[in-house]
Design a binder for these strands. Structure first.
Lengths: 206, 206
DNA sequence: CAGCCTAGTGGCAGTCACTGCCAACTCGTC
DNA sequence: GACGAGTTGGCAGTGACTGCCACTAGGCTG
């Protein structure tokens, strides 16, 4: 996830700073009290903005915590975009996903925030729900891109199975990784995903 | 889904009737106006109850539409319960799921309501989100049952992959089926699931 | 049958997520 | 220095959801 714009506006820089600040305090507050017991007013006060402004940055309270995950999804979408058209075999797409995971793991801040969110989701239903929605949107976006590439308005069953299987593997890997981390083990995300791919083959008799 | 209790209480019968009535009018209103533009007051008024009572039946507005899906999940959970311990191969679990789908398809009312909900979910983000949460809860319950059977407190990666793959196939089949139905084709749910299983093998190179 | 216990219901007040609108302010530009 | 666009805060309003309490009615017991 390299910085795209070389010279962002002062306004743009402020906006990004405010957004980052909100994400930071939201994650902290959710971790301390849970999303249920954290109000938007709490987050806004901690971030030094008005509640009204909060909703100009995030549509829902829970969304405020998912910054790192959204960035990962965007990066993954870019990588998948390059593959679509040339090859859409499960193995190639999994490679793509593994690359994205490796890139995220290389950025200390990014992977750490993702870990915090995933661990939080294990206990916090609100965050878990938001993450679920984000995953589903990512899958739907994948459908749309493939359909656009084939010029067809409808998504065929194979594409659905492909996308859902890919998503299932990613979710399983994230959950296992977060669970291990929460228990104090120092699991590696990329290695976990590698094991997940093997398990998928074993399970489906491939 | 046979009737379990032979002689339910008058109270119990009334409760079930009220619940069914709420589900009915909620589904109708969502289909007509969308869940976003339907208020709890609307649903309560149409069902002839107070808004306060509505929340004694359903935790959220969107949950009110998912009756048939919850019943299906409960039936599936019972069937899976019998398998767990004896065999937890993907193929056996898929058979189990196929049986549950066939049983639901045999009940006209049940399958029709599920179709309405799934078609609604294609356009209505609120309903889609609720359905997503329900699916996730079902998957989590499966984890818990398997973990309980093995006596382990932690869920191993293979179990996660198994459950997520099973869920992915079910979701793909439901989405494809609902999409076809929404376009006027008369797709069969069990046949669609059969095709989904084949696609999964093809995709994973099994 | 009378009386009691309990489940179910409605109303009310309150909290909180989220939105539309408007006024104030500020960055960037001409 | 003024103007236009982007950003913010306050305010009022809607609607989801909850806790509390009083009321009703089914079901049981003496």
């Amino acid at each position: 996830m390299p910085t795209a714009t070389p010279t962002p506006d002062l306004r743009e820089r402020r906006r990004l700073a405010t957004q980052a600040e909100i994400e930071q305090v939201a994650l902290d507050l959710f971790a301390r009290k849970g999303s249920e017991r954290t109000t938007v007013d709490d987050i806004a006060a901690a971030a030094g903005i008005s509640p009204r402004t909060f909703f100009r940055y995030f549509a829902t309270k829970e969304d405020a915590a998912l910054g790192a995950n959204r960035a990962f999804d965007a990066d993954l979408a870019r990588r998948l975009e390059d593959r679509i058209g040339s090859s859409t075999s499960l193995t190639d797409l999994e490679d793509c996903l593994a690359d994205a995971l490796a890139a995220a793991s290389a950025e200390t801040g990014s992977i750490e925030r993702m870990r915090r969110v995933r661990c939080l989701a294990l206990e916090d239903a609100g965050v878990r729900g938001a993450l679920l929605r984000l995953d589903a949107e990512q899958t739907a976006a994948f459908y749309a891109r493939v359909a656009a590439a084939t010029g067809s308005a409808i998504v065929d069953l194979r594409t659905r199975v492909l996308a859902e299987t890919l998503g299932a593997g990613l979710r399983a890997a994230f959950d296992d990784w977060a669970g291990r981390r929460a228990r104090g083990e120092d699991a590696d995300l990329v290695a976990t995903y590698r094991r997940t791919r093997r398990e998928l083959r074993a399970v489906t008799g491939g």
